[in-house]
């Protein structure tokens, strides 16, 4: 529009006089356009960024709210926990629920059992998954491909279908109500995922690295141990976290396979809901305390996790 007006004003002026402004106009036009475009792009980017931030905040609220609600509930008085309609913040803050939850018999023992079971299960998963994934990715045999698919299929079986037979089997080999039995059961959940995760991490490591190590005198296992595993340590950390979490939060197998010696905390948390009422405050207090170790573990391994997450993305 402005360009048109300018053209009209210039009409009737001498060619030489009009040439300079015309040249100036044609030179200014792209500059203006560029600046308009830049501003437009900048504004577009800003609005996209704002939209993304809003979406991100909404997602964070969506994911974080249940945990925050749990946390706030753990500080509520008994009547506040069951308020109709529910309140988000406690009307009166109390630590009574924490005293009740932690003072309940069997809670400290269940924590030790959970830690013990999760560590054993994680170690078992890694010890089995690392060589399995390495073998599958490096040898690329038909058997390997079938094996990795079969491992995935085991993830599709509902745990309740194998829980009862597993419990019977453990009982018949004298492992009833032991952390090792529960760890083995938990490994059946985490192992397939661990193999798949580790496979993708090994795929990202160039084979040249191992060949170089072999030239320098390493055996294949030596190359795996000294060269490949340090490279995929971030991936191992990610896999370990997933395996640990799978065991830490698992409920069904723990319910079916533990009694006095090896009962884990998820079962104890569930015990706050009885036929005769729900001790919601104590339940949330224990759940909040139970979340602390995994939050700390995640924070401790954060750098490794981020490194591991991006490891599989740079292959090729």
């Amino acid at each position: 529009m402005r360009v048109d007006e300018k053209t009209k004003h210039d009409a009737g002026t001498p060619a030489s006089a009009s040439a300079e402004p015309a040249a100036r106009t044609t030179a200014a036009r792209p500059r203006k356009r560029r600046s308009v475009n830049r501003e437009g792009l900048e504004a577009g980017r800003r609005s996209t960024r704002t939209l993304l931030w809003i979406l991100l905040a909404a997602a964070m609220v969506l994911y974080g709210f249940p945990f925050l609600y749990l946390l706030f509930t753990s500080f509520k008085t008994p009547i506040d926990t069951i308020a109709v309609p529910p309140t988000i913040l406690p009307r009166e803050w109390t630590l009574e629920n924490y005293v009740n939850a932690l003072g309940r018999s069997g809670v400290p023992a269940s924590f030790i059992n959970s830690i013990q079971t999760a560590i054993i299960s994680t170690v078992l998963s890694l010890v089995l998954a690392v060589p399995a994934a390495y073998g599958i990715t490096r040898y690329k045999t038909l058997g390997g491909r079938i094996f990795i698919m079969a491992a995935l299929v085991t993830r599709m079986v509902p745990p309740v279908a194998i829980g009862i037979p597993l419990a019977s089997m453990m009982g018949s080999v004298g492992l009833a109500d032991t952390p090792i039995a529960l760890s083995i059961a938990h490994t059946t959940i985490s192992l397939p995922l661990s193999i798949w995760l580790m496979s993708s991490f090994f795929e990202a490591v160039p084979q040249d690295l191992e060949e170089a190590a072999t030239v320098d005198g390493c055996s294949r296992l030596g190359a795996l141990w000294r060269v490949v595993i340090p490279v995929v340590s971030g991936g191992i950390a990610v896999t370990a976290i997933f395996a640990f979490l799978a065991s830490w939060n698992e409920f069904l197998f723990a319910l079916l396979m533990t009694a006095i010696r090896s009962q884990t905390t998820p079962v104890v948390i569930a015990n706050f809901q009885t036929q005769f009422g729900l001790d919601w405050g104590s339940m949330t207090a224990l759940a909040a305390v139970y979340s602390i170790p995994v939050i700390l573990l995640t924070l401790l391994l954060q750098r490794k996790i981020v490194a591991g997450m991006t490891l599989g993305a740079v292959k090729g």
């Binding site: 829980g163 009862i164 079962v267 569930a270």
Partner: peptide
């Protein structure tokens, strides 16, 4: 010694142990 279980899982646990013949 008490073996404490949540109500919702107790039936499954009982079924499992009674059917296996090994009770805890």
């Amino acid at each position: 010694n008490f073996v404490e279980l949540p109500y919702d899982g107790m039936f499954n646990r009982l079924s499992s142990e009674f059917s296996s013949g090994n009770v805890s």
